[in-house]
Design a protein around this nucleic acid. Structure first.
Lengths: 123, 123
DNA sequence: AAAACATATGAACAACTATTCATATGTTTA
DNA sequence: TAAACATATGAATAGTTGTTCATATGTTTT
């Protein structure tokens, strides 16, 4: 998200009392800006209830668009739009069989992340 | 997000050709609606680049608000607002030491999830 | 007690997102 | 090849979100 600063300078904190040693040390191990943006974009996909539900049902079985729509009690179009997002971010894959398209989870990380999330909220 | 349906019925798919066996089987193991909403809400927190950066720097060291603002080259207020979100969702904790407040990651799941995400995007 | 410092918070706004509706594309069947 | 089926997609829009600005709260120092 791009928000404008009304000045070319960023304001941060008006002092020189930062903990310099820590800041410098962490500064040196920071990943690329791009990598962190990708990471946020990746997690953003998990951050919507419709998409989480889709991921969950696909973690149980391969499924077509209308199966998912039925399970989630939502319209076919809404599901299809979200599947596109999931596809683009490589969280799901699909195979075509005649008229119907079967979706499934892309790889093991997705399952692991879902499971870790579940554990966290159940605490 | 709540969007209105112009009818009381949900439209799903206009047919009876769903794969009933799969749908019924998955239906029976679906977690509560609430649990899936919580899960999405939890992941939503990871889905913003500012928050991901905060989580990343905190994975390296305990830090005060201004350290973070300096590292991320952002305003104090923006960081503070995001820390509140992270606090509310129990992704970070804090301790006060005089005027300054030191933040750190709440538990191990956060590290694991970050690491899994990194692995995924590096593929 | 006043000034300075560190952080938190409310309001406002621009940017973004998820759904719906209508329709297009692709596949099979009659 | 026309009709029916399954999925995909574009436009529109209501709801949501992240940042800024101004200011409040809490702590220390003088």
């Amino acid at each position: 998200m791009a928000y404008r600063m009304n000045d070319s300078e960023v304001e941060q904190c008006d002092f020189i009392h930062v903990h310099e040693d820590i800041v410098n040390q962490v500064q040196s191990v920071m990943p690329d800006e791009d990598q962190l943006l990708d990471l946020a974009e990746f997690f953003r996909v998990f951050g919507d209830s419709t998409r989480i539900k889709i991921l969950y049902v696909l973690s149980q079985a391969e499924m077509c668009v209308c199966d998912i729509a039925t399970l989630l009690q939502m319209g076919q179009s809404a599901i299809s739009h979200q599947l596109r997002v999931l596809k683009q971010m490589r969280l799901v894959t699909y195979r075509r069989d005649g008229k119907t398209v079967f979706y499934s989870l892309a790889d093991g990380h997705i399952q692991t992340i879902l499971a870790q999330g579940m554990e966290h909220i159940e605490e």
